[in-house]
Design a protein around this nucleic acid. Structure first.
Lengths: 201, 201
DNA sequence: GTGCAAAAATGCAACGAGTGAAAAGAATAA
DNA sequence: TTATTCTTTTCACTCGTTGCATTTTTGCAC
């Protein structure tokens, strides 16, 4: 059996919940949307929501695992001639591309960006997820260069890069810059930081 | 009137709430402590708690504003001969010193560290506060070097430095390193990052 | 198909955080 | 003292989240 009915149905329920949530967040705002409404729209009980997502916040970040997986795969596909800086640069470009393309899944990206920027609890959750990713990436980066790059140094590299990008994005957004200028700023921040980390690896 | 009774009483209530919360968090753990218990211990109504702190999480970060203020003051006291790197290095050393000395207030530091490391919602809240501080610091750094350092570049610098430190700390903690090794790792991460940011400013 | 075990969905009750509004209490200025 | 202003309390309510017992659905062996 390739994919049982059970599994397919679960995926459909999951999708229904995601769609319902996104639609309602878009329509009435995050805090104004209740779990009861999301569940009703997806035609499941409120209780069932929690067997798919651990919290109301999490439904917005439904694809974060996928994203991390993709980044990890790219890291694992490292060729012997690539340096630490090469991998970081590749990661930077991949990330920018994902933003430009849309999330890859569909256009939850804009909605998510808007919500994360305006709803404190979502911002906090996003940062928390991001920190976890950073730890995972640091571990992977260390394993890509087991003897040249200690785990701590890998953490320094990943943290500096993502930290620089994050604060750059936030200050740019604060200033009301348009999306293409923000991307340019991100690229610059990434370049500067990666170049600066040259002493590692 | 130097300080009205009203004001003094408010400060006392605030302190009582902080003390009560910390004592209970220490004794029974964060999630196991209810707001009702904290309020009872501080001898105020549950409702009153919320005119002092916006959330249960926030009571643990009662001194974050003070800390930020101190850092800002130090930045503002910049002498004309100091470079961007000098200020960042100063900030790094100040921060390390605060950790070593204790919070400055008293020993909420160890408790807070333990809780932030183990309670997800506190970790998220801490990250959120930290991001806000970074934006403020970036703005201040930009204003310290109005024409040499753009706001975006200041964001890059602050973000890279704090990001590098944060992930370094987390990976070190993950590995179970003792406190003095963590401090050494932080200093190294800071040095590497600041040195790397040399092209800015 | 029928029956059965596993998995998933549901309903219900409960808890805790957080909010709004009105009433009571305390400090201040006059 | 009195009128005013700020603070605290009380009460009622919403919402997210969880535990538990029950029912429904599904996968599989016969």
């Amino acid at each position: 059996m390739v994919e049982g009915l059970r599994e397919r149905k679960k995926q459909r329920t999951r999708q229904a919940l995601i769609q319902a949530a996104l639609r309602l967040f878009e329509e009435k705002g995050y805090e104004e949307t209740t779990l009861a409404e999301i569940a009703a729209e997806a035609e499941v009980s409120t209780r069932t929501f929690f067997s798919y997502f651990a919290s109301k916040e999490d439904v917005l970040f439904f694809d974060s695992q996928q994203r991390l997986d993709r980044a990890m795969t790219r890291l694992a596909a490292k060729t012997p001639d690539q340096t630490v800086a090469d991998l970081l640069r590749q990661f930077l470009e991949d990330s920018i591309e994902q933003v430009i393309t849309g999330t890859g899944t569909y256009d939850a990206a804009a909605l998510r960006a808007r919500l994360v920027l305006t709803v404190p609890s979502l911002q906090a959750r996003a940062l928390h997820l991001l920190l976890d990713s950073q730890l995972t990436l640091a571990k992977a980066l260390h394993e890509a260069f087991p003897d040249r790059l200690s785990l701590q140094d890998a953490g320094t590299a990943v943290g500096a890069l993502i930290g620089a990008i994050m604060v750059t994005v936030m200050t740019s957004v604060d200033e009301g810059k348009p999306i293409d200028e923000i991307i340019a700023a991100v690229r610059r921040a990434g370049d500067v930081t990666i170049a600066g980390l040259g002493s590692l690896g």
